[in-house]
Amino acid sequence: MIATLLVVLQVVVATAITPLLIGVMRQVRARLEGRIGSGVLQPYRDVRKLLAKEPLRAEGSSIILVAAPLVLLVSSLLVVALVPLVTTANIPAVPNDLFVVVSILLIGTVALALLGLDAGTAFGGMGSSRHMMIAALVEPTVLMSVYALSIPVGSSTLSKIVVARGADVTRVVTPAGLLAVVALVVVVLAETGRLPVDNPSTHLELTMIHESMILESAGRDLAWLEVGSWLRLTALLGLVVNLALPWGLADSMQPLALLVAVVTLGVKLLVAGGVIAAAEVFMAKVRLFKVPELLAGSFVLAFLAVTASYLAG
């Protein structure tokens, strides 16, 4: 019962903070470009506006156009509930196992790809095929790198990995741990459509990946798509920061522990988001055909991490 309450609290906190994370990332970028920026609260205003608009749907489109945004949103909320962000507690019926989380992420990925195909536009199909190519390259690396971290713990349950790493500082700074975290950062950037794999603020249809799949969605549908993909960023970035700095998470309903957990999550996420946004200013999008090389590189790091954790224990 307490575990369920904690997980509900985690979903509420993560959902509330997600637009702020996106707002901070956009603001950091705007400031570094010499702009004023639209303020860190702009994503909240965007979502509110989208929810007030009519969801216009193309003639000849199917139920997918309505269902896929909801599937993406629900899958993202599930991932947010399972990944240890605020709490290390988990609902006993649904283990927050690495393989469960990756499978649920894939449900959202497939829903997005189907959405891109649904309206039958050329750009949507192109986006879907690129999206699936990246997904196929990303998932093995996510599995491998978290697997490397799970070997010393002896369990692929994410919350157990975080607890074990938090209890023993020497586990955090091992060669295997560092390699795995670096590999994870690269694949998280690819999975959430950030530079150098995809440019979230592009207007050029030919270079789009994520944006081109959602070109045909409007109003409420678009709001769910935006929130769903932002939540994926929160969940994956939160997983990375909690694996790299596994401290501050709550395991009980104590108010002080909860407060500390929420505040540390907020600080960790916003700082990590700010660093990513600042780094993106120095980067250009790489050619699509170079993306597999980048992701193969991160797979090699993950593979080395697994080897190192077998050798070094």
Partner: peptide
């Protein structure tokens, strides 16, 4: 003009 909340988008649906 982005500081006032306006943004260019790629699709009339957005």
């Amino acid at each position: 003009v982005e500081r006032y909340g306006a943004r260019l988008v790629a699709s009339p649906r957005h």
